[in-house]
């Protein structure tokens, strides 16, 4: 564990909690892409199946359970509890345009053609593009609530910190995972446009 990975995980946790609290407190998911949240729930489900097969640390297990729990709770709030506030017309990105190519790529480019490894690779590739429906929705509505921009900021920051974590781990531990690194770069690059607006505007954002 290193400082980049720890702050990255905390940033990710902050993003997930911010979103969940925003929806719960305002009792509204206006401006939130339910499709991105479904994709994140799918990312965590396919990546954390190893909860059933291996124990790495209390921290690792605890965080995985929290991530999965919050992801499904968020999807539940959007599609069930506060369904009336879900803006389906603007959340029109076709998820199959992401899931199908990512699924195919995971079968072609992976470290090992085994069930868990393919699912892990699928989750890594999917996570790198899972935010697209949300960014697409903001570009369609033309604005985003301030709290939503904080959610996106911490979500984008987490994988950027992971890039530094991988530099650290390569230098100090010789750890190197090309699949995670390339996908992490793609994921972070997708936020660049948003980061620029977030830093320059500070307030509500129009992509």
């Amino acid at each position: 564990m290193n400082i980049f990975r720890l702050t990255g995980d905390l940033s990710h946790l902050a993003a997930i909690i911010i979103l969940l609290l925003k929806i719960w407190k305002t009792r509204s998911c206006a401006g939130i892409s339910g499709k991105s949240q479904i994709l994140f729930a799918l990312v965590f489900t396919t990546r954390y199946l190893d909860l059933l097969t291996s124990f790495i640390s209390l921290y690792n297990t605890t965080m995985k359970v929290i991530y999965i729990g919050c992801a499904y709770a968020t999807v539940y709030l959007i599609y069930m509890k506060f369904k009336a506030t879900y803006d389906g017309n603007h959340d029109s990105f076709r998820m199959e345009f992401l899931v199908v190519p990512v699924g195919g790529l995971a079968c072609l480019v992976n470290h090992d053609f085994s069930f868990l490894e393919i699912l892990w690779t699928f989750s890594i590739y999917l996570e790198s593009v899972a935010i697209l429906p949300q960014l697409f929705m903001i570009s369609k509505t033309g604005e985003a609530e301030t709290i939503t921009t904080h959610y996106l900021f911490f979500l984008g920051l987490y994988r950027a910190l992971y890039l530094f974590n991988w530099i650290w781990r390569f230098y100090f531990e010789g750890f190197f995972d090309m699949i995670a690194i390339v996908a992490g770069m793609v994921q972070t690059i997708l936020y660049c446009d948003f980061f620029y607006l977030y830093v320059t505007k500070g307030q509500g954002i129009s992509l």
């Binding site: 790495i56 640390s57 995985k64 892990w120 995972d177």
Partner: peptide, 10 residues
């Protein structure tokens, strides 16, 4: 046979 990097990250 490619060595699979460990999966100790979230």
């Amino acid at each position: 046979e490619e060595e699979v990097p460990e999966k100790d990250e979230l």
